[in-house]
């Protein structure tokens, strides 16, 4: 049945080949195991937050101020409004700076030394610990004003937001085909109108994605707010006052000794996760729409 040449091969290979195949299977198994291990924490964290948080969420959680530590009830209304305020302040500072820098990199100066330096700084800024930004804003802005404030918190978050927005926006602007720019020039558009009316709208969805990812990143930040926005148990009357934020409230509740605070912490965490994941989903859906 088997001729001699084939037999020679099958007799030659077995010991080695079988070992190699077993090794292949073994490693495939390990890779699948690694995947399962990697995904487990996500379900554990999400599962615990939902299970522990959902019980404490009620209408009053969204409408009331926090009760003193240890008392039952109360809400995080000021922290929710505070987080939205901080996101708003950081957005009006960070988004224009991010988009304008990206326009510079993509439309004005793609390959110069300065452009590469800006690109590199942006990448490195992305990796700077956020607590460092908190210290710097404290040392410059908070000390200059004389007290903690929502403005200082917003500035700190803006600094963290800018690199994300720049990189995402630049990538999207680079995807706009040159023919669009050439067509605009051929119609007699000056460069600034070409950039603002042709290139930017063409990349709009991608830019929105980048902006949303930047916003989502700062929405959950705690460290840079500790010594800039500081937190507040009451409503802030102006953005020149210390202001509460959801992540800081979670930190306060989680590290306090009372059981009631702990359940408030889980509930606040649930709301924060829903906020952050929604922002992420919107960002991704906007991009997916563009690709189809």
């Amino acid at each position: 049945m088997i001729d001699s040449a084939d037999r020679a091969i099958t007799m030659d290979l077995p010991s080695n080949y079988v070992v190699r195949r077993y090794k292949n299977w073994l490693i495939s198994g390990l890779l699948i195991l690694a995947t399962l291990i990697a995904i487990t924490p996500l379900f554990m964290v999400l599962g615990y937050v939902v299970a522990n948080g959902i019980g404490s969420i009620s209408m009053s959680f969204f409408t009331e101020l926090p009760k003193p530590m240890g008392e039952v009830g109360g809400g995080v209304a000021n922290a929710i409004v505070g987080t939205l305020t901080l996101i708003f302040i950081s957005s009006i500072i960070g988004i224009p700076i991010g988009i304008l820098s990206a326009i510079y990199l993509s439309e004005y100066d793609r390959h110069s030394l300065l452009a590469n330096a800006v690109r590199f700084t942006t990448d490195v800024l992305m990796g700077i610990p956020s607590i460092i930004v908190g210290i710097v804003v404290y040392a410059s802005l908070v000390l200059a004003i004389g007290h903690f404030s929502a403005i200082a918190g917003g500035v700190a978050l803006a600094i963290i937001m800018v690199p994300t927005v720049i990189r995402a926006t630049e990538e999207m602007l680079n995807l706009v085909p040159y023919s669009l720019r050439e067509a605009a020039y051929a119609l007699g558009f000056p460069k600034w109108r070409m950039v603002l009316q042709i290139v930017l709208p063409a990349a709009a969805k991608g830019v929105i994605t980048g902006v949303m990812l930047g916003v989502a990143r700062v929405a959950g930040e705690t460290a840079p707010l500790l010594f800039t926005a500081f937190g507040n148990n009451y409503w802030s009357k102006s953005i020149n006052e210390p202001i509460a934020a959801l992540p800081m409230q979670i930190y306060l509740y989680a590290t306090s000794p009372s059981k009631e605070s702990h359940s408030q912490a889980w509930a606040a965490a649930l709301i924060l996760i829903i906020l952050v994941i929604t922002l992420n989903l919107i960002a991704r859906l906007a991009l997916r729409d563009k690709n189809t």
């Binding site: 964290v45 615990y48 937050v49 705690t222 992540p247 889980w266 994941i277």
Partner: peptide, 17 residues
């Protein structure tokens, strides 16, 4: 998604779980 979960939420989970 794992990357999107805020640090403070990991901390909360770390303390209590």
């Amino acid at each position: 998604l794992l990357a999107a979960i805020p640090s403070v939420v990991y901390g909360l989970w770390g303390i209590f779980v």
